[in-house]
């Protein structure tokens, strides 16, 4: 959890999105979080210039899942030299859509009284996992069968030391739900589902073997291009 985040919300550490030297003294670092269905862009805005900054505004380019600010950014201004401020910007997913490469890439324009600056950042796709992503067991079985094998991707998560219950609990904190669990030949097989805000479902099998720190995640999705990003979320939350 990030500082000040409610327990249970997964929040990757902030990274520098816009270094001061590229933006006439404006520095922005940030991360994304989802809590109770609300997606937020959490930013630290720092004035490393020698004069005050005012007139902040933010705009997103169209992106794969229609992420957009739910309202104008609220930055108390003026921001004095050497001052920094924490800002939370609530987002929605009803903005214009255009497929990005990578899929979770977001291009941002950020304005102040000095100029307009542009940067790209990547959000964890888990911020798009809906709270109602637990698929009915019967539907899961039918869907798993129905999605062709070509749409299955397999990934390894190396050096993970959780048992399957702990893994399942961590994954549930980002709205990946365990639907069934079976143990076969000493391997725990967890069947899981998640639903993206745009209605795309992903189905997963997580294989955990006692004493083996390497997990195998198999993902089946009708839109297999999301699998890589989904895997990154598994890795991030399980290794966090």
């Amino acid at each position: 959890n990030g500082v000040g985040m409610p327990l249970g919300s997964f929040c990757p550490p902030k990274t520098v999105w816009l270094p001061a030297m590229k933006a006439k003294g404006l520095e922005i670092s940030g991360t994304f979080v989802r809590h109770a269905g609300v997606i937020q862009m959490e930013m630290t805005i720092t004035n490393k210039a020698m004069s005050v900054m005012t007139g902040f505004a933010i705009q997103f380019n169209r992106n794969s899942f229609g992420l957009a600010p739910a309202g104008p950014i609220q930055v108390p201004s003026p921001l004095s030299p050497n001052q920094n401020i924490e800002v939370s910007l609530p987002l929605n997913t009803v903005g214009p859509v255009m497929k990005m490469e990578p899929l979770n890439n977001l291009q941002v324009a950020f304005k102040n009284n000095i100029d307009v600056f542009y940067f790209s950042c990547q959000y964890p796709i888990s911020v798009l996992f809906a709270e109602d992503g637990k698929m009915e067991r019967q539907v899961f079985l039918a869907t798993w069968k129905d999605i062709p094998n070509e749409n299955e991707s397999q990934f390894q998560i190396k050096d993970c030391h959780l048992n399957s219950d702990a893994a399942s609990n961590k994954l549930q904190s980002i709205n990946i739900f365990t639907i069934a669990e079976r143990t076969v030949d000493g391997q725990d097989m967890l069947y899981q589902s998640m639903k993206l805000t745009n209605g795309i479902w992903a189905l997963a099998e997580l294989k955990v073997q006692a004493g083996n720190p390497n997990y195998t995640v198999s993902l089946k999705c009708r839109a297999p291009e999301v699998s890589q990003c989904v895997f990154q979320s598994y890795e991030a939350v399980l290794k966090n």
Binding site: R137, Q138, L141, A180, R182, D185, Y191, E205
Partner: peptide
């Protein structure tokens, strides 16, 4: 009965994935 059938189906799925 449906629930039993689903339990059974998940067991078969897990088996098939471990010993294809």
């Amino acid at each position: 009965e449906l629930e039993d059938g689903l339990d059974e189906a998940f067991s078969r799925l897990a088996e098939s994935r471990t010993n294809p």
